[in-house]
Simulated scan of single mutants.
Amino acid sequence: MTLTAPAAVADNARPYLHGTETTALAAALASGQYNHSGVTDEFEQRVAAFLGVPDVVAVASGTTALHLALLAAGIGPGHEVIVPSFTFCATVQAIVATGAEPRFVEVALNTGCVEAGEVLNALRPATRAVLPVLYGGRAVDLSAAHAALDERGITVVEDAAHAFGSHHGSRLVGATGDLTCFSFGPIKNLTCGLGGAVVPRTPQEATACRRLRDLGIAESAATRARTTTYTVERLGLRAQMSGLNAAIGLAQLDHFARTRTARRALWHAYATALEGIEGVELVDVDPDRSVPHLCAVRVLTDRDRVFHALRERGIGVGTHYPPNHRQPAFSTWYRPLPLTDRLGARIMTLPFHQHLTADDVEHVTARLRQALR
């Protein structure tokens, strides 16, 4: 075991490129089409085919995907959206951006994901949507709540930022019938450099998302180029995915089977190396059905001391995530969430990206064992 930390373990996460992205990006640059282009259209079609769904709407980021999906579902002022506090703040910001209010709920300690019973207990007359977060890539099963949600006309909008390629039963996340949002940011399972996507439930939702991402304009850019006018039908944002980002995503998609295998193997390597280490518990991301996005543990005593000890030794640990019901920006919607507080005080993520080797995993876990002592 080396005393000096390997370079790869200094990063909690790092983009992984397969080598074809540079050629794809150069071709997109040479085309001169740097906004939404035919390459973006091809990316949408390829992702839809991968998921086995009729349509996918590519947008500028995962946060934008959540925002547009909520708007397309009719969420706005006077509505409440049930959401776990244990998530990245972007999830909550997307709700607030619509004018709706977040209703924070607990998650299970062993998974970091919300469960159906918690959703049912949180329902109120103003509830119009539920926004489960697929933490670490794990699919969330709300089937026990679907009848009640359907009866009340409540929409499920999945934050699947961590879960591209994961399965929910026999179907891929995104193909389960819910309004699903992906992120293709720098360190996601599939990266476009920056980007996201919405999987709409109906053609009407697809049209709404496309108009929302394109400043509310009814006509496509190609159509507008052939006419002397256009029609602005509704509120809209400039939220397209550029052809440059889509080109990177297409190159990544060609190698996704390799990504899936590598990320599952890495998670299992950590699970094996962590066996017998007292004082930490591994968060279960259901790795055989997911494409793991991270490796999170609960440090049972003095997480902050362990965190800083590892950082001082060159180990890129993180804390994903500080609970949002404690954040000043969301204090209006604070409610007591003791389980989330406990999880937030214990959570720590280990370096997790495809540049890591089995030796790197052994180095990280050996340092963790030392820090716990």
Results as ranks from 00 to 15, higher is better:
M1D: 12
L3E: 15
A5Q: 10
A5P: 12
A5H: 09
A7H: 11
A7C: 03
A8N: 14
R14G: 05
P15W: 06
T20D: 15
L25Y: 13
L29H: 15
G32E: 01
S37Y: 01
V39A: 13
E44D: 13
D55L: 01
A60Y: 04
T63D: 12
A65E: 05
G76H: 07
E80S: 00
V81T: 06
V83F: 05
T87W: 06
E106R: 08
E106A: 09
E106N: 06
V107R: 02
V107D: 04
A108W: 03
L109V: 10
T111Q: 10
C113D: 03
A116L: 08
G117I: 02
E118T: 14
V119H: 02
A129S: 12
Y135K: 04
V140A: 11
S143K: 08
A145H: 00
A147I: 01
L149T: 07
L149A: 09
E151Q: 15
E151N: 10
I154T: 03
T155M: 08
E158T: 04
E158P: 03
A161L: 06
F164Y: 08
H167S: 09
H168L: 13
A175I: 05
C181M: 05
F182T: 03
F184H: 03
K188C: 07
N189V: 11
L190N: 04
P200M: 08
P203T: 07
A206W: 08
C209A: 11
R211F: 03
D214P: 02
D214G: 05
I217V: 15
A225H: 13
T228M: 12
Y230W: 14
Y230A: 15
L235F: 12
L235Y: 12
I248G: 06
G249V: 00
L250H: 02
A251E: 11
A257E: 15
A265W: 04
W267F: 15
A269R: 14
A273G: 09
I277E: 11
V280G: 11
E281A: 14
E281V: 13
E281F: 01
V283A: 11
D288S: 12
D288L: 07
V291G: 01
H293P: 02
V297A: 13
V299S: 01
R303H: 00
R313H: 15
I315W: 00
H320L: 14
A329D: 14
A329V: 05
F330W: 04
T332K: 11
L337S: 00
T340P: 01
R342F: 03
R342Q: 12
G344N: 00
L350T: 12
T357Y: 11
E362Y: 03
H363M: 12
V364F: 07
R367C: 15
R367K: 14
Q370P: 09
L372K: 04
